[in-house]
Structures are given as C-alpha cells and as structure tokens.
Amino acid sequence: MEALRAAFRLAQASGAALDGSDLDGAYSELSVLAASGAMATTPAEARARADLLLLVGRATDHAVTDFTCAGTPPRQAAGTERRVIALGGIRAGAEAMPAPAGLVPTLGLLRAALASRPSARPEHADVARALKGARFGVVLYDPAELGEMGVDMVLGLMRDLNATTRFSSCALVEPAARLVVAVSAWTLGQAPRSGLGRGVPEHDPWRFNAERQVCSGEADTLVWVHPSVPPPAWTRSLPALALLADPRGDEADIVVAVAAPGRDSAGTLWDAERATMTFRPATAPRTDRPAAAVILDALTERVTMERGHPC
C-alpha cells in the first residue's frame, strides 16, 4: 500500500505513466465491467454458501479454488449438496465436463442450452439443468486465460442465470493487481493504465500499457516496483530502476533491495480469499532494508526540486 501510494506520487511529480506489473487478466475483467457490468462474489462467500461451483479452465487448479472448495459450506441452503463441475479441466472431487470446442464456445453452448436455443447440445442438458437448479451457484474463472470475450461470456451467463436463480462469479486475479486497481481508482478516479504527462490523469489502457510504450520507444525510463517479481525481458531496452525484495543485482541498470511487506516489514496487502486488503505484520522482521516507499519518496522530492514546482 505505501509503496503504491509513493509510486503514484512519483508519477504525479514526474509526469509519468503508470501500469501494474501484470494487469492483462485484470483488464480483461475491467473492460467487460466498463462495457456491461458484472455479477461477482467473494471466495469466502462462495465457500460458505455455494451449492454449485463451476470451475472454468485453469480455475480447476488454483489456491483460491482450494480455499473455496474446502470444508462443508455452513450456510448452504438446507437440503442441498454441493456439486463441483470442472469445465475443461480435471480436479479431484469434481465432475469433469469436457470442452472440446474450447472454453469460451462451450460457455456459449451452455448459455444456448439455458435459453433452449437450437444450437444447444444434448450432452450439456444435465449441466444446464444443474446451473438452473442451483440455489446459489458460483463460477470461478481466470480472466487472463479467458480474455475479454471469455469474461464477457461468463458474465453474460450470470445475467442469464439470475433471471430465475442466484448465481455469481469470482475472477481469479493476482492479489497485487487487485491492490493496484483499488488504490488507483481512489487516487486517480480511474484504473491504473493512466498517464500524468499532461498533469491530470488520463486513463487509456491501450496507450499506457507499459510493455507497448517501452517496445514502441515512447518511454525513456522505467521504474519497476514489485517486491517479488523481477522486471520482464522487455524492460531491458531502456534505462531502468528496479526495487526488489530479493534481487540478484542484474535485473536492471540500477537495482535497490527493499523490504518485502508482510515478511521483512509490516504492510497492507491484498487477501485474495477475502477479496479485500489486510494488514500483515512482518514474519521475519529486518531493518536493514528500506521500504520501497522511502526510495520512491526520495526520488519524488528530487524530481520536484528539479522541476521547480510543487506537487
């Protein structure tokens, strides 16, 4: 949290553009959200209430899915038993539903089956019945895997189902991506792919995609802030500073070792299962590593001084 806030301050002071380190999945979800909305729930609520779980693709094998499937749902509607269906994947304890046509087309076929349209396939009748009959069903999916059109299909399925029953969805998005989207929303009024070059934030997911900006030569410097993920190969074409918790030292032109929040120091992080922020004390406190925010704020101070106007 503090590193993010400091990164936004530095971007403001220097007129930089911002992006998350891995927002492709998050943006598949965000773009559908901004086009047609969503129906969503938390993994904790799904774990407690869902009588039907539909796991799509990679969601069959994911830590949040393990959490969601664990134990007996204490608040599941009376007289129901949880059914777990793995679409296009395999998972112990789940019924496998093959998706030879591909994940997204198969989701489409399920929607056609629910609406009794002619393209519905007989082999989907049982699952379609189960979806319709669920008291509170939840679909878990990875938007990075399904892409924008896949997310659109999942959320369309939610709208279809909720005409008569209750159903919701959980997108499995990287916790760090969730955190940066939240902080960006309240700091800029917009999602993170924003530029401050003209002083006020401009949100443009295409223009401010960092990889695109670097590869097209539009960017001339890069600051990489992520405790646990080293900068990817495409960052090597321009002068870069990387703030990393456990650096090798050759990840960028300048590498600074910083404290890992939740390990070296206390910090606010995203809890994927609870789908919100949580404060984590240091598990192995050490004081020889500066917080990323301290480095970033020092840069902000210097940039502000040299640019000669307050921020």
């Binding site: 046509a101 997204v104 087309p105 489409g108 076929l109 929607r111 349209r117 002619p118 393209s119 396939r121």
Partner: peptide, 10 residues
C-alpha cells in the same frame, strides 16, 4: 471466407 465458427451459430 471465414475461420472457425463457434458452435452457437446455426
């Protein structure tokens, strides 16, 4: 001409 059609076109 077209590439693969999704099965929800009839």
């Amino acid at each position: 001409t077209h590439g693969t059609l999704v099965p929800t076109f009839m």
